[in-house]
């Protein structure tokens, strides 16, 4: 009984976590969508760490437009799936991919000067933490508890 109650509390907390992460992604995506002047050029051009050359090549004139569009679409996708609770595992994977790129472009390595950060980080930063949350959401889907997946689940249960 205790375990069941705790399990419900954990599930509810993860639902909240999922909504908040989705919220964060969606807002970033929407802001970019409504601002056609936005570009990831500065973020990529100032990339640091071992993968800097890769990020720098993404700033090329022929590529940057695609990079910007893909980034925005991916952000919206993660946001919509996590908030709506539909295809959330796919959304979590895309989120993991995006956050890995963000982390690698500006890793919190002690020998690098931290650009545009509002706190102090050593190896671990907020991108990395959010990434691990996405891993959790991937392994612990909650769309059937709160989200569109609830209907498919209910349908299956009714059939039995």
């Amino acid at each position: 009984m205790t375990n069941e109650i705790n399990g419900k509390k954990v599930s509810a907390t993860i639902v909240v976590l999922r909504i908040l992460i989705g919220w964060h992604f969606l807002y970033e995506g929407v802001v970019k969508m409504y601002n056609p002047e936005w570009t990831s050029f500065g973020y990529l051009a100032s990339a640091q760490g071992p993968l800097k050359p890769i990020f720098t090549t993404l700033t090329a004139e022929a590529v940057i437009g695609w990079v910007d569009t893909l980034n925005m679409v991916a952000l919206l996708l993660v946001g919509i799936t996590l908030i709506s609770g539909f295809l959330e595992r796919m959304g979590s994977l895309v989120g993991i991919g995006l956050l890995s790129l963000y982390y690698l472009a500006h890793p919190s390595l002690p020998w690098l000067q931290q650009l545009n950060v509002e706190g102090n980080y050593w190896l671990v930063n907020k991108n990395l933490i959010e990434l691990v949350v996405c891993v959790l959401l991937y392994y612990y889907p909650t769309g059937h508890i709160f989200g569109l997946t609830y209907f498919t689940r209910k349908k299956e249960l009714t059939k039995i």
């Binding site: 909504i19 989705g22 919220w23 969606l26 807002y27 995506g29 929407v30 802001v31 969508m33 409504y34 601002n35 946001g79 919509i80 908030i83 709506s84 609770g85 508890i145 709160f146 989200g147 569109l148 609830y150 209907f151 209910k154």
Partner: peptide, 26 residues
Amino acid sequence: DLLKGLGGLPILGAVWWAGATSTVNN
């Protein structure tokens, strides 16, 4: 059932609206 299944959608709409209006106003 509806609350559990569709509860996320108003949140989705609210976040979208907030992002769009603030960007457009700015």
